[in-house]
Design a protein around this nucleic acid. Structure first.
Lengths: 213, 213
DNA sequence: TAGATTGTTAATCGATTAACAATC
DNA sequence: TAGATTGTTAATCGATTAACAATC
């Protein structure tokens, strides 16, 4: 049974991948059903929260029994849109861009890696994992729709690159540039991976070991 | 004027690096003072929130005037402990580990890169940016205190590596392994960079463009 | 049927926003 | 001094947790 989804909070969305990961772990250990309270205990969460989270999208459990793990994995996968492959490109073939080509399992995360782009003449034509690095200006001429761009360019180029890509019709960005983009662009969807912010938070937590939450 | 810090919420801590980054940007543009309302407008935030956030740590502004940007940068830097260098090691010298050695400005984020470790005999002794890859077992014999470990090992090894490192006295982790650790360890500090979770969230947001926040 | 556990409503808790007195 | 803007208290909003009736 599925629900009309209106507006789901970021907190809920943020927990879905965590549930997904943990349920796969349980499945791999031969477990095929689980109750919200037992899942909560294992994940160090609250059972009410798990039920509330899932019920944003529909009723996927069975009273007196719990949740079927295979089914729940399918459901979350479908909510996160992991089976419908979207075209993604990597913009910026520096160390980070290249690492992502190798390390990210795009296929299983809802994406088809469509191409890798850069503007450095020295590396154009080189191949990474069977992806030939192409000139970024080629994006304009693509007939295929690109759904998402991964921004791996240096911070100084983040803004102008995004201007260019939005002109090419791309509205969704996985942003590794340490540059805040939502400030300058309306109507784009951005998921930030600000590694330096993350490390600063760790620095704070390390200092305030017993005073931070 | 500084305050007795009791317990600051993760939401507040999470915004500090963002303020820090933006204030440096303003400074680089020759601006030396700003009011909370003007900062809020530029950052698409709420002025009350900025004042509340800062006042968790003390009163750093001046009525009728606003905040001195240089001073505020210093204050936040000190709150985040960015000037007191802590020893950090990278564990796992695969593509990601190597990329972090090159791309992360540890020095300016509160850390001194102390060493890079792996257990792959083929790469031991190799040098990355003047860091020689050392055998992970050497960590046990270190006389120097290691404050933080960056976990860049394959997911399957995350748990056992963490067990080993905690035995060596390391309690703070920057975790890139896609393995939840807090579930298994008490009393450790972890900052997760779950790239696959991040991409799944983007997948969700892309699908639900107009229904997600 | 009885026991277990969901789905959902209600209560609580915390974070964000508004208001305003203090003060530079 | 008058105007501006902080620091801080109070009000609102949203997210988490508890409770329980519905039901498998």
């Amino acid at each position: 049974m599925s629900k009309e989804i209106t507006k789901v909070s970021n907190s809920v969305i943020g927990r879905l991948p965590m549930y997904y990961r943990f349920l796969i772990y349980l499945k791999n250990n031969g477990i095929n059903k689980i109750s919200s309270s037992s899942l909560a205990e294992k994940m160090h969460l609250n059972a009410s929260q798990i039920r509330q989270d899932l019920n944003c999208f529909g009723g996927f459990g069975q009273q007196g029994y719990g949740y079927n793990i295979d089914y729940l994995i399918d459901v979350i996968s479908s909510i996160l849109d992991l089976t419908n492959l979207k075209n993604i490109i990597i913009v910026g073939a520096g160390k980070l861009g290249v690492t992502l080509v190798h390390d990210i399992d795009f296929q299983n995360l809802g994406f088809k890696l469509f191409g890798v782009y850069d503007n450095n003449k020295d590396i154009l034509g080189t191949s990474i994992n069977n992806n030939i690095i192409q000139d970024i200006s080629n994006i304009e001429n693509l007939k295929t729709t690109i759904d998402v761009a991964v921004l791996c360019v240096p911070k100084e180029y983040a803004k102008q690159t995004t201007v260019f890509l939005t002109k090419c019709g791309i509205k969704t960005f996985w942003n590794f540039t340490h540059q805040d983009l939502q400030i300058y662009f309306n109507d784009i969807i951005v998921e930030n991976v600000h590694l330096s912010d993350s490390l600063m938070k760790l620095s704070y937590k390390h200092k305030h070991k017993h005073t931070s939450k």
